[in-house]
Amino acid sequence: MFKRAKVVLPVKKQFMTYLKRGHYEAPLQMLIINDACFAIVPCEVTADLGLEFVKRCKYEYPILVTVSNDYLGYFTPEPEALEELTYEGRGSFFEASRGRILINSILELLGEKENLLKPVDPEKDMGAVEGRVFCEDLEGIHVGLLREYRAPAYGDPPSAPMYGRRIRVDSKGKFFFDKIAPGIVYLYVDREVPGEKRPLLLTWGVPIQVSAGKVSRVEVCVPKELKGRDVEEIDVSEVTYENHSILLKVKLKGKLNDGEVLRAHLYYTKDFFKPHRLCLATPLAVAENTSNSVFVFKEITPGEYVAVAWLDVNDNGRLEPGVDKMSKPVLVTVKE
């Protein structure tokens, strides 16, 4: 059996002039073969939204066929589209309700109207983040939120985030983000520097637990000046393994000033190169620092590891690529 219909999608205000309309009609098709249901849709559907269709479809084999007959960008669950913290959440010409409208249109085409997705109430179903940045100099300070534990990426214009949301703090360092979906989000702080194409990243990965209908509060301290001004390069020059210990020899180009010390962390290779960099917050091992040139990881079992030597430029105790000065990651294979 074959069915088809039109799904009517509301266009975001900033794109109405480009699309020359306030609503857009897109084709929706359905092919049913025995106990399989093929829903043919004109967009990319994220896994979370696709599962909403799978849970509600009465057929044993519900299948989404995406990017068919048109290309309308990413369709996500409504909370993700409302908060606009992910690339997919922001990646469409259409309003945040687009994902809900799509899934409900599919179910209605199937005659399943009793289990439709309900609209999101931002006041009850979403949360907010309120906070303050403490710094001796607040000039140019901005804060941003991301859904993943990773450094921000900047687009065009230079200070525009590729994903997530970013705002300038007020004269007291205060800020507020509304319409944030429940779960953990991660805060970053940067400073716009006159004459520079990209902001100076001061910290990232500050976790904030968001709950529906509540305001989560956070305070962040960042130094006026970062350490390591005279450190040009950190290089792991030699790696050896003996007596269940990994030894790193590190060369430093430049010099350490008073109060500056190098550190070394060890991670599993399979964790270190994931886009979600949560492993950086909890290293597998922290090396004993016998000097600023020799580091030892003890009681290391066979496996694939990554070692990094680094300088904590903002004194927060966390390795933050893009903020801290660090060596290139060194792959270390430990065999029996």
Rank of each mutant, 00 (worst) to 15 (best):
F2E: 13
F2A: 14
A5T: 15
L9N: 11
V11W: 00
K12D: 10
F15R: 08
Y18N: 12
L19C: 06
L19D: 08
R21F: 11
H23M: 14
L31Y: 15
I32A: 06
F38I: 04
I40K: 06
I40S: 07
I40V: 11
C43G: 09
T46P: 04
T46H: 10
D48L: 08
K55P: 04
K55H: 13
R56A: 11
Y59C: 00
Y59V: 01
I63K: 01
L64H: 12
L72S: 03
G73V: 10
Y74C: 11
F75Y: 13
T76C: 05
T76K: 08
P77F: 11
P77M: 11
E78I: 00
A81G: 10
E83H: 08
E84V: 02
F93M: 14
E95G: 15
G99M: 14
N104V: 05
N104L: 02
S105D: 01
I106N: 01
I106W: 00
L110F: 07
E112W: 02
K113E: 10
E114K: 15
P119Q: 06
V120N: 02
V120S: 00
A128Q: 05
G131K: 06
V133R: 00
F134K: 05
D137H: 01
G140T: 04
I141N: 07
I141C: 07
V143M: 02
P152F: 03
S159Q: 06
P161F: 02
M162Q: 14
G164M: 10
G164I: 12
R165C: 04
R168M: 03
V169F: 04
V169W: 02
D170F: 02
K172R: 14
K174Y: 03
K174P: 00
D178E: 13
K179Q: 13
G183N: 13
I184M: 09
V185E: 01
Y186R: 09
Y188R: 13
G195W: 04
K197E: 15
R198C: 07
T203E: 05
T203I: 04
W204G: 06
G205P: 07
G213H: 14
K214R: 14
C221Q: 05
V222S: 03
P223E: 00
K224E: 15
E225F: 01
L226V: 01
L226R: 05
K227I: 08
E233A: 09
I234C: 04
I234G: 08
V236S: 00
S237F: 14
E238F: 09
E238Y: 07
H244A: 07
V250H: 11
K251S: 15
L252Y: 12
L256M: 07
H265I: 07
L266M: 10
K270W: 01
D271R: 00
F273W: 14
L278S: 10
L280K: 05
A285N: 06
A285Q: 06
V286N: 02
V286W: 00
T290E: 14
K298P: 02
K298L: 07
E299S: 12
T301S: 01
E304Y: 05
A307Q: 11
V313N: 10
N314A: 11
N314P: 07
D315I: 04
G317T: 07
V323A: 14
D324N: 08
K328R: 15
V330P: 09
L331P: 04
V332T: 06
T333S: 14
